[in-house]
């Protein structure tokens, strides 16, 4: 059997099993060539596994709420977000720097000129300070959410050894302390819009961090909740939302 024949036939087999060719000559060739028979066998097994994966995807598509999803996707696409992602990340920082510049300038100027409180300039200054505070809060919440997302990932992938559960509990306790501190500033930020998600996140942190340390069942219950509520995805959405420019002060 010529090497070229086998190479040609193997390409033909791939096309045939992918529904792109009628496989003329394949059967005859395989009957006479052991190497290619083995190759075909391996290909058929591979196609079987691809079918399983494809069925997995198909069955997960069946349970989807397409109506709700279409509404959500449409809302997302049509919301007025002209700024690119890069701009969105830069704008809060630029606003903070601008505010800081104004603050410094005003302090120097008022020190020299003695501007009374309650004037327009003083109000503008107070607006700028609030803007700086809001942007700062926003950055802190984004950092917090980033770390919370890592913890959620760990919860979803944990294999449930005792050591892992202890690590999860320690990380959750640390985040819970931060969360309480963040709560003080939440009213000033757009995180209000996502209060429900934050409450669920707080539930996860509390469940994992209270004494005694979490057992297998408690971690499994938390994982189920994280999966059911699609918490990882929602936390990512809040992060994205917060990365967009501040709309109001």
């Amino acid at each position: 059997m010529k090497q070229n024949d086998c190479e040609h036939m193997r390409r033909e087999m791939v096309l045939w099993l992918s529904g792109e060719s009628d496989g003329i000559g394949v059967v005859q060739h395989v009957e006479a060539c052991r190497g290619c028979a083995r190759y075909l066998d391996q290909l058929q097994r591979l196609m079987g596994q691809i079918d399983i994966r494809e069925r997995e995807i198909g069955s997960s598509l069946q349970g989807m709420d397409w109506e709700g999803l279409a509404k959500q996707v449409t809302r997302h696409a049509m919301q007025p977000q002209a700024a690119s992602d890069l701009k969105r990340r830069r704008l809060p920082l630029a606003a903070a720097l601008f505010g800081l510049g104004l603050l410094t300038g005003y302090l120097v100027f008022s020190h020299r000129a003695g501007i009374p409180a309650g004037s327009n300039a003083a109000r503008q200054l107070s607006d700028s300070i609030r803007l700086v505070e809001t942007v700062k809060d926003q950055r802190e919440i984004i950092d917090f959410l980033g770390r919370a997302r890592l913890l959620l990932l760990e919860i979803l992938h944990a294999q449930q050894s005792e050591q892992e559960r202890d690590v999860l509990a320690g990380a959750a306790a640390g985040l819970l302390r931060e969360y309480r501190y963040l709560g003080h500033n939440l009213t000033q930020s757009r995180i209000q819009e996502a209060r429900g998600v934050m409450e669920r996140l707080s539930w996860v942190l509390t469940e994992l961090s209270y004494d005694p340390p979490p057992g297998r069942e408690r971690v499994a219950a938390v994982r189920r909740m994280v999966e059911r509520e699609r918490l990882l995805f929602k936390v990512r959405l809040i992060e994205r939302e917060l990365e967009s420019p501040v709309r109001e002060v």
Binding site: L61, W66, E67, L69, A70, K71, V73, T74, A77, M78
Partner: peptide, 10 residues
């Protein structure tokens, strides 16, 4: 647009 999304999203 929503109908378009519904048709094409799967």
């Amino acid at each position: 647009f929503e109908s378009l999304v519904r048709l094409l999203q799967p």
